[in-house]
Structures are given as C-alpha cells and as structure tokens.
Computed example of a mutant assay.
Amino acid sequence: MKKILRVSAVCIYDPAGRLLTVRKQGTSKFMHPGGKPEPGESAAEAGVRELSEEVGLKITAVDLELIGVWTGTAANESNTDIEATVFTAPGTWDPAEIHPAAEIAELRWMHLDAAADFDDLAPLLTEYVLPHLTNLNN
C-alpha cells in the first residue's frame, strides 16, 4: 500500500511571468518550493514557512491564494503519493532576491509554455499544476 505524504507548495512568478522551480539536494526533479506541514500548522502556514526557509521569501499566509489540491506520484519518495495543497504568492518577485537555502540545491525560472522542453519536472507539476495554470491563462 502506498503512503500518502501531505505537502504545501507555492507558485512564485518573476516580472517576466516565469514560474520558480527548485531542485532539492540529492534529487533530480524540479518542483515548487514547499514541504510538509508541521504539527498544528495549516497548509498556508506551511507554504509561507517553506518559502522563507527554502528561498528567503517572506510573506504571510493570508496573502496566499489557493489554486488547488491534487494527489499524485511523489517525485522523490518511493511507493508514495503526495497530496499537495498548491497556492500562488501575490505579485511578482525579483529573481535577484530569491536564493537557494536549506535543502535547495538549485533554482530555475521557467516560462509555462516552455515546460514541455524539460524532462526533469516533478509529476505534480507536469500532471496537475501546469495544465491547471495553462487553462487559467487561456
């Protein structure tokens, strides 16, 4: 039986409309910044804490906009599905102010319409979030 891992993830955009993706140390897949909620923490609270820890972005939970909750295959955990609550952060962010921290090995800003050019994106991103975002923008 597969394990279920609950996570929060946040979509961050730069002024050019590119989506921030991150690759965690020891992994090969790019995904949203985010992670597991701590005990007693809401999904939005987990999202803003993870943004702060992983890329140094400081916002408040009430600023996040929910875009969906999806269950899919975990990118970095065998025999595990993730249930991801995905938010969008308000506004746009200067890439020069976003830096990898904690377990983040690499940042990559990606135009949504270029996602098919990458073969290293997490399943949640390719199967659920990107199709949802593309539909919103059409």
Rank of each mutant, 00 (worst) to 15 (best):
A61L: 09
V62D: 14
M31F: 04
E45M: 07
G34I: 11
T73F: 07
Y13G: 06
V48E: 06
R18Q: 05
G56Y: 05
A44H: 08
K36R: 10
A9Y: 00
D63Y: 08
G68I: 11
K29Q: 09
S8L: 05
G47W: 04
S78H: 09
I67L: 11
N76H: 13
L57A: 12
N76Q: 08
S8D: 05
A74F: 04
M31C: 11
S42R: 02
K36T: 13
L20T: 12
A61D: 13
A43G: 11
G47L: 02
A74C: 14
I12E: 01
I67T: 08
E65D: 08
G26N: 06
T21V: 12
G72F: 06
T27D: 00
G35A: 08
E54R: 05
T27H: 08
T60K: 15
N76V: 08
E65S: 10
T27N: 02
G56S: 06
T71A: 12
S8T: 14
I59Y: 04
L57D: 03
P39N: 02
A61H: 05
G47N: 01
A16F: 06
E45C: 02
D63P: 11
I12K: 00
D63T: 12
S28N: 10
A44N: 07
E38N: 07
Y13T: 11
L51V: 15
G40E: 00
G34Q: 02
C11Y: 00
G34E: 00
G34Y: 01
R49L: 14
A61N: 11
P39G: 03
P33T: 09
A74G: 11
E77G: 07
L19P: 13
R49T: 14
A74N: 09
V62K: 04
E45Y: 02
L57Q: 05
E38I: 08
E77F: 13
A75I: 13
P37E: 01
P33V: 15
G26S: 02
A44G: 12
L19I: 14
G34L: 03
V62A: 13
T73A: 10
V22S: 07
E50K: 05
S42I: 07
Q25K: 15
D14K: 01
C11M: 04
V55Y: 03
L51G: 15
S28I: 08
P33F: 00
M31Y: 02
V48R: 01
M31E: 07
L20Q: 05
R49H: 10
S28M: 12
E45N: 06
P33C: 05
T21K: 03
G17S: 01
E45F: 01
T21C: 08
E38W: 05
V69K: 08
I59F: 04
H32F: 15
E77V: 14
E54Y: 12
T73G: 05
S28P: 07
V62G: 09
G35H: 02
G17C: 04
E41K: 00
D14A: 03
K24F: 10
V55K: 00
T73P: 06
E65Q: 12
G17E: 00
K58S: 11
A75N: 08
T27M: 03
G26W: 05
V7G: 04
W70H: 15
N76R: 12
G47E: 01
P33H: 03
A46M: 04
A16G: 03
L64T: 13
V62P: 10
A46L: 06
